[in-house]
Nucleic acid binder design. Structure first.
Lengths: 201, 201, 201, 201
DNA sequence: TAGTAATCGAGACGGTACGTCGGGTCTTCGA
DNA sequence: TCGAAGACCCGACGTACCGTCTCGATTACTA
């Protein structure tokens, strides 16, 4: 979490009500009017919270949205384990696409991604709290597949993640539509091949 | 080009001096102080141009930077053709990384990417004027390789582009460092394999 | 007339059409939307005349309106001569009130009066071209009354004019309503008394 | 007082420092550079106050100057009472002329008078806060003179005020010089005569 | 069971930039 | 060759948010 001070300033947060009202207001504003209308002022007004209170606990509207999104995402979509690693990865990518296009999380995450491009602290936070934990799940699932012999023990897992996530972020970054089922299938197939192929000398 | 209205306001009378001064000022400000300090006001002040003139010809500071970047990129780095398609692709990705990290174009392009996430018109313009033309060069080179038998005639070229560009945009979108030489080599090797492998049934 | 240069720049004025279109446009705008909406830009647009042409012949929008009003007033209300000076003065003041409240001339003259407060050249022009000539008519009529013995030969005519016009301008300057018939009658009666009374030693 | 909305926005929290700094800055600018240079921007800059703060409490620069002038005038020139009503009125008119020509209040009041011609709200405010209270003092003095028998009990006091103030505003409205001592004496003499003369049937 | 101290809402404050408007000057193009 | 059209620089407009701050009024730990 990004807070004014590095460490959580005071666990004796007075009002849980303020916190959740702020997060909800931010998400709602983002979903309804787009990220451009997400303003500390507007959040404060809608949440019935003073600006001072917001600034006490967050440093940026990006930080607010990150908290909100993290909370939502944490309570959602774990990685499936059907025994078929390729199918599970397809499912995973599909659910990622659904995340990007979800009416609430989508715009919020897009806003976060826009902001982190000019805010290193936010970038680090997004990676540490949102992306890396989720990628860790993918690694975990892949390691399971390695143990079951579905993937070679020396497979280049990070590369595979980049190859899977890459096209999604590429399209998202350029405002394009996302890969369809067919494309995802092809993509994951190539990723599997890459995982099973020793890196070229 | 993104202009305030759909039809240009009689571009015949446009002052070339104002135009180039504006573009230069925008790039300089971005390089010197970061995208956050790129402001219509600041651009106008540095360029010695009135805000009205800027608003007459551009609708967004993103549009200004897009024009500026397009002009720079257009006059630069064509795709090499050494006869070895794999090597040429490696070179191409390398030069793309260099673009992202270049002190002038890098920050500007990052700013554009941030803005297009909330501006559909800009998104379309970035694709139409910057990305698609450059990708077309890649396609062209690949088609040459197809004619020389280095690639199969039915290779999935768009997929290859996504696989190459994807990891770059993925890392950029999350504010990470870019792939090194080694990584690019691996990546392009897998792309070649994908190009040469018929799509899985 | 207030022109860019002191002397009428060129009697070989090219387009009478432009001149009258400008004056009409100015009056219309003033009558329709109030003086605040009278703008060189708006006048030019409505008159179908270029701004440059307007600036060639006038220095201020006040100058334009002055020309327009002068033209209208010149073609109107001469001072009556019924043989009864007191009645004639009452009529004169009444017609002056009607001028102030006329839907076309009223707002225009109000605008001129506002502008001349910050523009000495305009102030002089208003006096020389509009007020003094009309006051001269009053003097002329009063001198006629002197010859007929209705007024003493040493009557303080300027003072009388100030006493008559004063209350009108006082009320106008403070945005109040104008004197009614009854009040005008009282006022003129006192003026007559003043004219007939030797100045106190 | 003219405020943005009808009800003051909770004037309890109003910063007195900002208020007086704004009024002073406005008067100074007006005195130094003329009313044309009185700009909300300039006032804000000189007062070290934000434009928002100014707009929060005033709707117009005219309103600002009115407040400033009212404050100055309120703390100045009460009507004298020497026992001689005619002399006191002469003194009063003289001090009014001095007000018009004073280097600080003069230009400010002139600017206010120009602006009220196009702003009904300001016109009302000028009358209610500045002119009517001061005229009330004149009435009060005149009523004292009535009680002392210097003036008849049925004297037309409002008419007298119009006859005194009228010539001043007439000359001011047309950008002319003000009456000199001699003229004022004559004027007041006629006003006294009018006060003592029953209205003509 | 009071202090008493931090947190809460509200919102004023000094700022920066916004996007628009009009002023007055200068250039271009068509009739 | 002249005038309409309008681009240009400039400066002010009034607005929106920023992040900081000062208020009383709740709280909820301490004494």
């Amino acid at each position: 979490m990004i807070t004014p001070s590095v460490s959580d300033p005071s666990p004796r947060r007075r009002s849980e009500k303020s916190r959740s009202a702020t997060l909800s207001a931010a998400l709602e504003l983002c979903a309804e009017n787009g990220y451009g209308k997400v303003t500390i002022e507007a959040i404060a007004a809608r949440a019935g919270v003073s600006k001072k209170t917001i600034y006490r606990w967050w440093s940026t509207k990006g930080a607010i949205l990150l908290d909100a999104v993290t909370e939502l995402v944490a309570s959602g979509s774990p990685l499936p384990d059907t025994g078929d690693i390729e199918a599970d990865l397809r499912t995973h990518i599909g659910s990622l696409v659904r995340l990007f296009t979800s009416p609430v999380i989508g715009p919020a995450y897009t806003g976060i991604l826009a902001e982190l491009l000019h805010d290193e602290r936010l970038a680090r936070a997004v990676n540490d709290e949102l992306v890396i934990p989720r990628v860790a799940l993918v690694y975990q699932r892949m390691r399971g597949a390695q143990e079951q012999g579905q993937l070679p023990p020396d497979a280049d897992l990070p590369l595979a993640v980049e190859m899977m996530y890459g096209p999604l972020y590429y399209r998202h970054a350029l405002g394009r539509s996302y890969p369809d089922e067919q494309r995802i299938e092809t993509l994951v197939a190539h990723v599997m091949r890459a995982l099973r192929t020793p890196a070229p000398s």
